[in-house]
Nucleic acid binder design. Structure first.
Length: 103
DNA sequence: CAGCAGGCGGCAC
DNA sequence: AGTGCCGCCTGCT
């Protein structure tokens, strides 16, 4: 499987996440057919421009926390977008029980 | 709650 | 084509 396809698989899967829901890196990787490749997801998202159409902000760590430095612009933006979708995100933390997506 | 090793893919040499 | 290092991770000490 071409690497470009794997990247697409991740982005395609990500597009399926509805607003107001979140997904963990590992969960997304698995859903994209790449179990265990959580870190790959992080890298792919890191290459996306902040104003990308991709809902990268719906991806959080398996602990239900934003996996970015709290003082980074990305962190601010992610929490802002999540709140805009109705996700109660405080200090980069949220309840997976309530917002985790499951296809 | 912090620290560490494990597992998967991408990329540079 | 082979090898090694690195990451917006994870789960277990």
């Amino acid at each position: 499987m071409p690497s470009s396809t794997k990247r697409e698989a991740i982005l395609t899967t990500l597009h399926q996440i509805p607003a107001g829901k979140v997904i963990a890196y590992g969960q997304l990787a698995a859903a994209a057919g790449l179990p265990g490749a959580a870190r790959l997801v992080g890298r792919v998202l890191g290459e996306l421009p902040e104003d990308s159409q991709v809902p990268w902000h719906r991806v959080v760590s398996a602990q239900g926390k934003i996996s970015l430095p709290p003082d980074s612009s990305g962190f601010i933006e992610q929490e802002r977008r999540l709140r805009a979708e109705g996700v109660n995100c405080v200090n980069g933390k949220l309840s997976l029980k309530r917002y985790q997506w499951s296809g």
